[in-house]
């Protein structure tokens, strides 16, 4: 176990570093991108690269700290469960929001190359 601890720590720090980088980039993207449907991609970077990855990293670091005693398993376990919830729920949130925004016309997909969904709606194939 003692041999494994430094490895876990280093991996954890690398993951936290990746998370920090992704957060900054996603923040810049959030402000640079022109409309809602493009910003969704920046939000994905925030959720996965920026939050899921560092939470896993923190769990690994916590596992390697023996001064915390038994409580470190609590931190690591809760961190893993949080990360799994994030992994399942974040995309669903984005999807629901995108769908509602698209069909309620609250946000418009303006600079667009192609919109096959709109064509199908106009053809009457989809009623929403």
């Amino acid at each position: 176990m003692n041999l494994l601890n430094p490895v876990l720590t280093i991996i954890g720090y690398v993951l936290v570093g990746i998370g920090a980088f992704c957060q900054v980039v996603a923040g810049i993207g959030m402000n640079r991108f022109p409309n809602f449907f493009v910003r969704l991609h920046a939000a994905t970077i925030c959720a996965i690269g920026g939050s899921f990855v560092p939470i896993i990293g923190c769990s690994l670091i916590a596992l390697s700290i023996e001064e915390f005693g038994v409580i470190r398993f609590f931190l690591a376990g809760a961190g893993f469960v949080t990360a799994v919830f994030l992994l399942i729920l974040a995309p669903v949130g984005s999807h629901l929001l995108a769908k509602a925004a698209y069909f309620s016309k609250a946000a418009v997909l303006y600079p667009k190359a192609v919109d096959l969904l709109e064509e199908d709606v106009e053809r009457g194939e989809i009623r929403e």
Partner: peptide, 14 residues
């Protein structure tokens, strides 16, 4: 659908 949404660059809309 979740895999597609979770990779940046693609989002499932419908």
């Amino acid at each position: 659908a979740n895999s597609i949404t979770n990779t940046p660059g693609t989002v499932t809309v419908y």
